[in-house]
Amino acid sequence: MTAEFDRSTRFGTPLAFLQIGVDRLGYLHDLYGEESRQEILGAINDLLRRSTRSSDLLGYPEGDRILAAVPHIEGEHANFLAERLVSGARGLTFEADGRTLRITVSIGLIHTADGVESFDEMVVLARESMTTAAEKGGDRYLRAVKPVPETRGPSQPAAPNPSPSPTSGEPQFTDVLLAESLRQALSGEGSQAVLAKELLAKIMSEVEDRFQNSSGTGDSRHELLERRVAKLGDMLSRTEAQLRDVLGPKADQGISSVYHDVQGLNPEESNVEQKKELLSALFDANLRMKKIIEEDRSSSKS
C-alpha cells in the first residue's frame, strides 16, 4: 500500500484509503464465537471486492478492521464507494445459534486530494475518522480532513460527508419558527412571552426525544448484556465439566458383571426343561402385557 501511495504521489494519480470496522464486532464475537467473527469479516471483504474494480483494490484485514487502498478513484467517487459499502453492509445477514444477525459498519475515508503527505498520515487520519464514525453510532462513513496547521491541535477528523442518518438533515419546522420568534424578540417586534413559550416547548421536545432514545438504547444494551452473560455462563459450565473430566478424581466406572461371558440356563441342571417352560411363560406374559399397553396407548392417542 505504501508503494501504491508513492506511485500516486509521483504520477499525480488519485488514491482513496479506507478503514472499515464492523460495529460491535467484539460483542458479536463474545456472543457467537470466533467462527461468526471470521464469517462477518469475510463477508465484508467480499462486499468490498464486489463494490470496486478488483484489479485496483489493495486490501487486507488488520485485527477487526479491513484496510483498503483504492487507486485511480476521484474524491467524489470515493464518497460514493464508502456509501455503497455502508448500505451494502446493512443488507448482509448471518445465521448464528438459530438467530439471524445483521451488521453495520463504520468507515474512515481519506483521499489524496485531501492533502495528506505520507501513507502513515493517511492511515492515522482514516483510523481516527473510523473511530469517530463508530462513536457516533456507526452505520456511516466519515471522510477525514487534514487538520489546519494553525490549530496545532491533534488531528481532528472532520465530518464533511456523513452518511445520511435519521438525526441529520434539514432544519426542522419548529426550529424555523423558533428562529423567527427569536429574531422578532431581539428586534422588539415580537413578544418575549411567546419566545419563552416556544423555547420551553422546544426544550421539552428535545428532552423527550433524548429520553426515548436513551431508554431504547439502554434496553437493547441490557438485552445484549444478558445474552452475553448467558453465553459466557454456558461456556463456563462446559469448561468446568471438561476440567472435571481432565483434572477431577476418576469417576466410578461401575463394576463389571461377573456373568459377563456366562448367560442363560445351565444345561446340566436337573430341572432345566421345567425352567425353560417357566421362563418362556414369563416372557410370554410380559410380551402380552407390552402389546396390551401399546395398543391401549395407540387407541387412546387416536
Binding site: 448367560q263 442363560g264 425352567k275 421362563l279 416372557f283
Partner: peptide
C-alpha cells in the same frame, strides 16, 4: 436368577 437364566433373545424382544 430369573434375569440371568432368561434367554438373550427374550431380552432383545422386550
Amino acid at each position: 436368577k430369573i434375569a440371568h437364566d432368561m434367554p438373550a433373545e427374550y431380552w432383545e424382544q422386550l
